[in-house]
Design a protein around this nucleic acid. Structure first.
Length: 666
RNA sequence: GGGCGCGUAGCUCAAACGGAUAGAGCAUCGGAUUUCUAAUCCGACGGUUGCAGGUUCGAUUCCUGCCGCGCCUACCA
């Protein structure tokens, strides 16, 4: 409702100005919140209009106030120096809408959205960096679904790359294991941990004797040919590790719909179809000399085009790209690189390739949801993937240039629409503090000791594994739950501890803005106090507890409250100086849709985490100041209970979007 | 060398589109529970927003230069 009002207000103000000053080009109306509730609920800075209108800000504000007319939901407007228009919401009106949980209809853009996230190399256990990716991606999916959008979740699997090849080398050439032995190993619990250690050993083995690297190339080559024994082993390993990744992410309530694999992009010749179109459109050029002789190259994204400004229509001569600005797409030996495959894959995503994967069911979640995987020959009946209107790739910032190159390739192919709806959801790395590195027993080199942080390295086997972190969080939470609720059964306490652990982990990964580098530290990640997931969960638990003691069901209380509390009661409750504090809580509760809209528009889930914390803070302060069950005035008591019901509902909603559930007690 | 990003309190981070007195958490110190759970609340302490200019009514935010740090810049993925 807040969001609806916000939009309507901005529109009305603009209309008012256009009516009063016709023909003048005006900047957009910005709606923000005044620094204090006493000043009002919305604030519109008028300064930007002063120049184009050639009128003093205060005077313009006064004009709007006088001429805008009545608006449903708005109680009044005030002009504030040096040039703000402050607007007060009709508190009783807004509160009644909130109690009744009214949602104004919204227009939902047509078309399906594809969110690609996780995309972990299937050669070792997932670590904290992958957790950040998956949690950001999954939360973004939940944001979109909350906004009514249809979303497909894809997890791209690079099962034929160097990283898988390295582990295959480890099994076949260092450990000299047979296919049957490897198969037996894949059935052991946490096979991905085994691979984690082996992968680190392979890297050392390469270091020890450079000649060993020959095997990497041979193996890589063999994997691409599906008929080889090596390819069979690689498939065995990558599928087993992939399954482990799905299990790990499922612990956090993260699910996928489809797992497209690089092997199918190769075997179903996606690239051939894309290559033809890229050549026809002149996106790729053949280099006949220089260091990239014999390669098909394209311009790297972000490098300037020579005559971008001068628009000569007749100049069809292909612009020479300097070697430095060239991105090799097809190598001189005829094989295609990663960016090329990615271009083909993205053409498929937008339904522009003219080819499709085969599909088969791969993994069934406990809730019976099926996750599909790509295959050469698939099942006849399968859901329709791809052909989407919008695409978001959750990939860390190091791939910005590659992502932009794919986007520009789409644009240069003439698919401007697709390029415009291609979004690289970029985020910063998770790194380790030197203290954390020391706790993990890692010996820092002299050079590393001087740094403020150390990067996670799968190659060195250096990092915090996702399952380990989650296990540690659960143990830590369980200790607290055990001491607080000894009367509960052990499985019940474990269940609660798990919910708290997930809440802490997901909140931790979401509270930082996405571009910031997270310096991982066990002390902060394992904290359950202050700005954390458990803080917000605890606020809801307290709210639930009030209803339990009052013998009222909070879920159905809304409808009852709407009939029991009259608009006059609400108006009464929000009058007077002291009422500002409770109103602030209602106001914050009304913002869910507005905050979620902002998160989507800016691809920034951290705003929601911030909002949840602020709402929790306001509620906890309210909780301390207002004893509810002992309130003698029945009408006041009903109002306070309605307040708790609304805050509880909105907090749970926001937490659900973050993938966080709330235990019955804490 | 070129490109992208970052630099805010002791530490970790906010402040979308330039706006009202730059805010939180942690840490430190001092308080609060006969009450709906103290995983909570209240208070104190803590700032030349890396440096120097510029743009303007107004700059943490935009522009230029400099300093420091990170990433990208492979016929790897």
């Amino acid at each position: 409702m807040y969001r609806h009002l916000e939009h309507r207000l901005a529109q009305r103000v603009l209309e008012c100005l256009q009516r009063r000053y016709p023909g003048v080009a005006l900047p957009g109306v910005v709606v923000e919140q005044p620094p204090k509730v006493e000043l009002g609920d919305f604030a519109i800075p008028i300064f930007p209009f002063a120049k184009p209108l050639r009128v003093a800000p205060l005077k313009i504000a006064e004009t709007i106030r006088a001429e805008i007319g009545a608006m449903e939901g708005i109680a009044g407007m005030q002009v504030a120096p040096p040039g703000y228009l402050n607007i007060s919401i009709d508190r009783a009106w807004m509160a009644a809408a909130l109690v009744a949980d009214q949602k104004p209809p919204t227009e939902i853009p047509p078309g399906k959205i594809l969110v690609e996230h996780s995309s972990i190399n299937p050669n070792k256990a997932a670590h904290i960096g992958h957790l950040r990716n998956a949690i950001l991606g999954d939360t973004f999916v939940r944001l979109l679904r909350y906004a009514g959008r249809e979303v497909d979740i894809q997890n791209y699997i690079d099962n034929t790359g160097v990283q898988v090849a390295d582990v295959v080398v480890g099994f076949m050439h260092i450990e000299k294991k047979s296919r049957a032995e490897i198969e037996a190993l894949t059935r052991q619990p946490r096979f991905d941990y085994y691979c984690w250690n082996l992968y680190a050993r392979v890297s050392q083995w390469y270091e020890a004797d450079k000649a060993n690297r020959q095997l990497r190339l041979q193996t890589l080559h063999a994997i691409e040919d599906a008929s080889t024994e090596t390819a069979a082993v690689a498939d065995l390993i990558s599928v087993a590790v992939l399954r482990r990744h799905l299990e790990t992410m499922d612990r956090l309530d993260i699910e996928y719909d489809f797992l497209p694999r690089e092997s199918e992009i190769l075997h179903l010749h996606f690239w051939d179809a894309a290559f033809t179109k890229l050549k026809e459109a002149g996106v790729l050029t053949f280099e006949s000399e220089g260091k990239n002789e014999g390669c098909w190259v394209m311009r790297r994204a972000g490098t300037a085009e020579p005559n971008a400004t001068t628009e000569d229509t007749e100049d069809t001569e292909v612009d020479k790209i300097t070697e430095e600005d060239q991105k090799v797409i097809v190598r001189s030996n005829g094989t295609v690189g990663y960016v090329g495959k990615d271009i083909a894959y993205h053409m498929w995503k937008f339904g522009l390739l003219g080819r499709d994967f085969g599909y088969r069911k791969f993994y069934r979640y406990p809730n019976n949801h099926d996750c599909w995987i790509s295959t050469a020959d698939g099942e006849k009946d399968h859901p329709h993937f791809g052909d989407v209107a919008e695409n978001y790739n959750v990939i860390d910032v190091r791939q910005s240039e590659a992502q932009n190159t794919v986007k520009e390739a789409l644009r240069d192919l003439g698919y401007g629409e697709a390029a415009d709806h291609f979004t690289h959801f970029s985020y910063g790395m998770v790194v380790l503090t030197p203290r954390c590195a020391a706790e993990l027993g890692y010996n820092l080199s002299e050079e590393e000791k001087t740094r403020s942080f150390i990067g996670v390295s799968g190659r060195k086997g250096f990092g915090v594994k996702a399952d380990d972190l989650l296990d540690q969080l659960i143990v830590s939470a369980k200790k607290e739950v055990d001491s607080r609720h000894p009367q509960l059964s052990d499985p019940e306490r474990l269940q609660i501890a798990t919910q708290i652990a997930i809440g802490a982990l997901r909140y931790f990964m979401l509270k930082y803005t996405k571009q910031s580098v997270i310096a991982f530290d066990f002390k902060e990640a394992l904290s359950f106090e202050g700005e954390t997931g458990p803080y917000a969960q605890y606020a809801v638990v307290r709210a639930t507890s009030i209803f339990r003691k009052a013998g009222v069901d909070p879920e159905t209380f809304g409808q009852d409250a709407a009939s029991q509390i009259s608009p006059a009661d609400l108006a009464q409750a929000f009058t007077g100086e002291a009422a500002n504090e409770i109103w602030e809580l209602w106001l914050a509760s009304s913002k869910t849709s507005s905050v979620i809209e902002q998160c989507i528009a800016t691809t920034e889930p951290a705003f929601l985490a911030k909002h949840v914390f602020q709402l929790g803070q306001l509620f906890n302060a309210f909780y301390h100041r207002h004893p509810i069950l002992s309130e003698p005035d029945e009408r006041q008591k009903a109002f306070l209970l309605a307040t708790v019901a609304v805050v509880r509902r909105e907090l749970m909603r926001c937490l659900a979007v973050m993938g966080i559930t709330v235990p019955p007690v804490m």
